[in-house]
Design a protein around this nucleic acid. Structure first.
Length: 272
DNA sequence: AGAGGTACCTGGCAGC
DNA sequence: TGCTGCCAGGTACCTC
């Protein structure tokens, strides 16, 4: 489900609800998500105070001073703050009980998500070690992507979705950014010019920023920390619009598969 | 090393 | 109605 803007939306929403809250206990209802849930989670977390809520790539990090929690929402994960006693649904796998009568509830129907305790700074967790820079980092510019891509025959769409190159760009925003930059998604990454990479970096930042401002994209089930949907879906120019007219030239948007992922593009506007 | 495929898991929907 | 097959916002691991 979530790409960078959705995780950022949840991060900003959770921050005021969690910072300063003491964790009174943990209820675990599933043994494993994508990775096993530590059976000692309750012991590790009880009494800890959430000091900081932050995001790195598509990971949400709860820093508790001595240790912290690393969360990834996978494809279908939700985090909501609910009243402690609210009856859990079938896929509500973990509740972090808070000292104010609420609970942070992790729901993930497909169980591709991750929720881990680490006794160290969550930013130093091995899961985060190989991640590339954030798309808003100054080091990510046209020159950077141009250099990373030399010699690569991989299509540019999976290339910019590679979290080792740059983080946060998932399947929706990859199609959208390539459309805005006028680059055909199947183009070999190594054959795209420096100038087009510059446009692409600008397009990635633009689309991510606009999506954050809209509270993320709800296609089928994304919800923020209060259950509110994101409103960026109406701004999508190509994603999910197979057969509909291109908003620029009017010719039909086409769909193809790249790296087993649905990809949407305008064959007229996207060339280089 | 890089590219491409598969696996993880459940739910929703189209088509028969 | 009920079955089958395909699709879904992600990532890790396998093989070639």
């Amino acid at each position: 489900m979530p790409e960078l803007p959705e995780v950022e939306t949840i991060c900003r929403g959770l921050e005021p609800l969690l910072v300063g809250r003491r964790i009174a206990g943990v209820i675990t209802r599933a043994g494993a998500l994508r990775l096993p849930i530590d059976p000692g989670l309750d012991r590790a977390l009880a009494g800890k105070v959430v000091q900081r809520v932050s995001r790195r790539a598509k990971y949400l990090l709860l820093d508790c001073g001595e240790g912290g929690i690393v969360i990834h929402l996978g494809m279908s994960g939700h985090l909501q703050v609910v009243p402690r006693g609210l009856a859990p649904g079938r896929h509500d796998h973990v509740d972090l009980l808070l000292d104010d009568g609420q609970a942070l509830r992790f729901c993930d129907p497909r169980r591709f998500g991750v929720l881990l305790w680490t006794p160290h700074d969550p930013r130093c967790h091995p899961l985060l070690a190989a991640l590339g820079p954030e798309p808003f980092d100054l080091q990510v510019d046209g020159e950077y992507l141009f250099r990373c891509s030399r010699g690569r025959i991989l299509s540019i769409k999976p290339f910019i979705m590679d979290q080792r190159i740059v983080v946060g760009v998932g399947n929706i925003y990859a199609s959208e950014a390539l459309f805005r930059a006028g680059i055909a998604p199947a183009r070999a990454a190594g054959q795209v010019s420096r100038a087009r990479y510059q446009r692409l970096v600008e397009a990635i930042r633009e689309v991510l920023q606009e999506a954050i401002a809209a509270g993320g994209t709800t296609i089928r089930d994304f919800r923020g920390e209060t259950g509110r949907p994101g409103y960026f879906a109406r701004e999508l120019k190509v994603y999910g619009r197979d057969g509909q007219p291109c908003p620029v030239c009017g010719r039909p948007i086409r769909q193809m598969r790249l790296g087993q992922r649905s990809t949407y593009f305008c064959p007229v506007c996207q060339k280089g």
